[in-house]
Nucleic acid binder design. Structure first.
Length: 456
RNA sequence: GUGGUUGUAGCUCAGUUGGUUAGAGCGCCUGAUUGUGGUUCAGGAGGUCGUCGGUUCGAGACCGAUCUUCCACCCCA
């Protein structure tokens, strides 16, 4: 019986128009990546579970799609374990592969595995889909593209500066002007946690702080209390909620909070270096902004943290993020390999460009001219003409059946094909081509040379 | 993972307190018009009302389960 087909939740089909638009974004980003000296790599869609598990925290592990082993996987499970019905413990017995959850961890694996072939610092970019067993929401899917650029093997803060410039270059090239690149530093966050006596609660502290612009100061404080941060510490935080003004003013304010924390002071120093660099070099259309509440992906970031916000007035979460991770490859046995990287949120960028009407009109890839099919003899003549046009780089095609003209014309209309050529008995006899412009309805009888130049 | 929300024609949606044969607009097909589309007019096709089960003389409507959509949490791109 015919059943209604469907796709799994959180996945999407892309129609030709959407793929063309997405490719436009990919290509724009790629060309900037390459201008900045990054090289492409690709890694498999799925990895060994042991590569992925435990790298994203408990929450992350839950969101990893696990792949069932092949064959009679249950027969190999230890009976006692089976009786416990403990899904978490059994997962490792029946699933040894998992879909990749992001591109950063596979990249770390790649670096470790190919360390002898790589010249460091290694600058790579990667644009591939990733999968998360999340509940879908607006701009959040279970399968989506990630687009990362990373450098490993250099501690230099010039890398951070370059990434800020890269963000600026990409969004400028996409015509998305006025994005805000927010920057923070993990060392500052740990410094603050240290100062308020919550060093062991760094993650609780930052998760709460991250919500400041969303739920407000009071709610953040409430949450900090709930998460077990001492009230006295929260009180010393007071100046933090009042941070205002330009980069320099905020840094000065931070300095007063952090003057007892070596780590915090180091973080400020790093921020200042990056900011001074960017100030001296300038940005095209983006703005760099210090945001101490920024606390994403804390699981592996150790230095700078980036996040990009869409231009003001656009309702959309972050459209990019990244940061420095000093020890990403450590878990795979390669020590002292510092890396920095940034990521672009493709799907969200797509939605923002669509919203603002920023896709260029010229990216359409439709065929330029359709030849009307009048029958077998005429079709042969059409194919000869089409070969000429194609070898001149003109996208041309023949309507495959000698259907009613009305039908062929509507087809051209529906596909937005701008021109139609009528090549019937009378044209063949006079060795000419009737070219009709679909929008104006205007038509002319032309020679092959005239046809080529009209369509070029 | 928690709480809510949605599902009726290819698409966007009506459908009254449960009552005969479930509607509209757009799209599609045919014709007016056998070498001229996008306009107009006339006609036509297309639905196991998400799925399974229950209540009822009777269910698109009520109840349960399940899937799906969207939203808020959690988390995150």
């Amino acid at each position: 019986m015919a059943q209604k087909p469907s796709i799994p939740k959180g996945t999407r089909d892309f129609n030709p128009e959407e793929v063309v638009k997405r490719d436009y974004i990919f290509n724009t980003i790629k060309s900037q990546f390459e201008i900045f000296g990054f090289q492409p790599i690709e890694t498999p869609s799925f990895e060994n579970s042991s590569t992925l598990m435990g790298k994203y925290g408990e929450e992350g592990d839950r969101l990893i799609f696990k792949i069932l082993n092949s064959g009679d996987y249950l027969s190999k499970v230890n009976n006692d374990l089976y009786q416990t019905k403990d899904s978490n413990k059994m997962t490792s017995e029946i699933s040894e592969k998992a879909l990749r959850y992001d591109l950063t961890v596979p990249f770390a694996r790649y670096v470790v595995q190919h360390q002898n072939d790589i010249s460091f610092p290694f600058k790579r970019y990667q644009i591939q889909p990733v999968w998360r067993a999340d509940r879908p929401q607006k701009g959040r899917f279970r399968e989506f593209y990630q687009c990362d650029a990373d450098v490993v093997g250099s501690n230099s803060l010039w890398q951070e500066i370059e990434f800020v410039q890269l963000y600026d270059a990409v969004f400028t090239a996409l015509g998305l002007n006025g994005v805000t690149i927010k920057i923070n530093n993990r060392k500052i966050l740990s410094g603050i946690a240290e100062v308020i006596g919550a060093k062991d609660k760094l993650i609780d502290f930052t998760v709460a702080l991250d919500k400041l612009d969303k739920i407000g100061e009071e709610k953040v404080k409430e949450e900090m209390v709930e998460r077990g941060i001492p009230q006295s510490g929260i009180d010393t935080l007071q100046p933090l909620f009042r941070l205002k003004g330009d980069f320099g003013a905020q840094v000065a304010e931070l300095m007063t909070i952090l003057n007892t924390s070596e780590e915090g002071k180091k973080g400020i120093e790093e921020l200042e270096f990056i900011n001074k660099g960017i100030e001296a070099l300038g940005l095209k259309t983006a703005t760099l902004q210090l945001d101490v509440t920024l606390a994403r992906g804390l699981n592996y970031y150790t230095g700078a943290i980036f996040e990009v916000a869409a231009p003001e007035g656009v309702k959309m979460g972050s459209i990019g993020g990244g940061g420095r991770y000093d020890d990403l490859t450590g878990v795979f046995g390669l020590k002292d390999m510092s890396g920095v990287g940034i990521s672009f949120g493709l799907d969200r960028i797509y939605l923002v460009l669509e919203d603002l009407g920023l896709f260029p009109k010229t990216i359409s890839n439709t065929v330029k001219v359709l030849f009307i099919n009048f029958g077998a003899d005429e079709a042969m003549a059409c194919m000869k003409a089409i070969m000429r046009l194609r070898s001149n780089g003109i996208k041309a095609e023949l309507y495959p059946d000698s259907a009613k003209m009305k039908k062929q014309m509507s087809y051209a209309n529906n596909r937005d094909i701008p021109y139609v050529v009528l090549l019937g008995a009378s044209e063949i006899e006079s060795n000419s081509y009737t070219l009709k412009h679909m929008r104006t309805g205007e038509q002319k009888e032309l020679s092959m040379e005239q046809l080529i130049s009209a369509l070029s």
